[in-house]
Nucleic acid binder design. Sequence first.
DNA 1: TGCGGCTATTG
DNA 2: CACAATAGCCGCAG
Length: 584
Amino acid sequence: MSAPGPVGEVAVAWRHDLGAAIVIDGGDGRFVDAAGAGATIGELERTCAPRWVWWSQDTARTFVSAGVRPARCWDVCAVHRLIEGGTRGGPGRAWAHAVGLDPDSAPRVEPLDLFSVADTDDRAGPLRADGHLRAEWAQGAWAATSDAMLEWARLAGAAAARQRDLLARGATGDPETGPVRWAAAGGDAAHRLLTARSESATVALCAELEHDGLPFDRGAAEGIVSGFVGDRPTGPDDERARLAELDRRVLDHLPAGADDDLRSPERVRSLLRRVGVEVPDTRAWRLEQVRDAHPVVGALIEWRRAERFRTTFGYPWIDDHVGVDGRLRGRWAPADGAAGRMTATAGLHNMPAELRPAIAAEAGHVLVRADLGQIEPRILAAVSGDAALAEATHALDMYAPVADRLRVGREVAKLAVLGAMYGATTGRGAEALRALERSYAVAMGHLRAADVAAQGGNDLRTHGGRRIPMSGALDGSAGDGAERSRAAARGRYGRNAVVQGAAAEFFKTWAALVRNRLAPGGARIVLCLHDELIVHTPRDDADVVAGLVVECLHEAGRRWCPPAPVEVRFVADVSVVDRWSEVG
DNA sequence: TGCGGCTATTG
DNA sequence: CACAATAGCCGCAG
């Protein structure tokens, strides 16, 4: 293959069944049929490692399932969700926003009714006369001639170029609200560009996490599940019998004939009332407080635990999400939710700790775990530019110097710092909050500014430029004096979002660096958990991988943090284990 | 069938 | 027991 000199950017549209359209540095472009696409794109990646520009995660999945793992990319939809905020954002909205059209007027496919005629014109190109993308293309139903696919790839390249302009200019082409610059928010243009790239890399990482899955010891998992709910049922009748047996262990503590539905909180409350236990709700921590009042309470707590393993993390969960290759798989989203954290389905982010022994390295391999320590207060120090708090990050346990400065115990200092970031107003931390205001005025001012702006319904931006929409957010139940409480809720939400969101951006920068450094070897990231990475690696490489993960953390810190008189330090706890449950 | 409320788990 | 998320079941409205 002849590469015409150095290659920078390659816009690509690629589907297994159709083939790939490739436009190198805005040139003429070419089309490769389905049979040859993988080899051609793989060769380009090996020889040039260009920045691939594509519309959305679908293309990342096509890359990964064809065995190509792009080092650098630009995902138009991911960058759009960064700039505009929220989670709505297919190619139609992304294109409209990038070229300055009203995103709300982007065409959508209307449900067919008796009088409408489906637009099935196979010759229709992706672009409409009014400048919007045709809805069918935006939704992935490409009507593919090679010319149309080349056009589709070129449009992705054009959208990316416009997005780079938007990021350079200061982020906002928002026609309704105008510039939403909030005084204390946001890094500079270079930082927004860094964020756009690492958000894009995270799209590729998500496609890989979906493809590779998490190494899973099915036997160990079934052993753990059986400890809670017994052996695997042999059939529907057996399952019903076991269910009744579990229920009976609770109901047997009651007068004969009791037949309450334990799955209904209201019935559980009335059940408890009958034995003289009055509770406002039946949450576990509240039941724990009245455990000694009657034997049925303990039985109920135990029943809840078993019920959790029966319904959510039981045999059906294993059957549905663990492949024949012994990998646990879910769907991954690079920046879901308000602040842009990664999310995953299939319980990958909320698996009960008891199941961690089932996350086990394969033969000849180990897991390298790396936990970021106290990531949110460190991020707060960086984005607020608070020199005193930055000084505290030099300690391995930054709550220790904070406690010294506030003249309180470590636990109180921790509660106060967390409370400031979550918007707590009561509890033990609240007392120390005033001392926090005096000692770390810059950081507290940053949080308060976010709180006030959010209370007023103003959109926020994270340090990386992610828009946090506040209009319409958290407009919960109406009622007497509810507006005050809703404003307070918005304030807490905004206070937290600027920290949690920036922390998510930092995490993804770190993960993207690790991903690229691991690529040449046999090690792969197999789980991301907000502040924790798990890498699956051949045993012989474990020490090298562990060192590399730490190097990448320092590199991420240097690249990510705004220039400041006092450097912010990041720390990680790294261990090499066979099972996730093990402490290094 | 869809949706809010309740409950549980995780960071 | 603040902030975020996924997920299951119940009870109710349409």
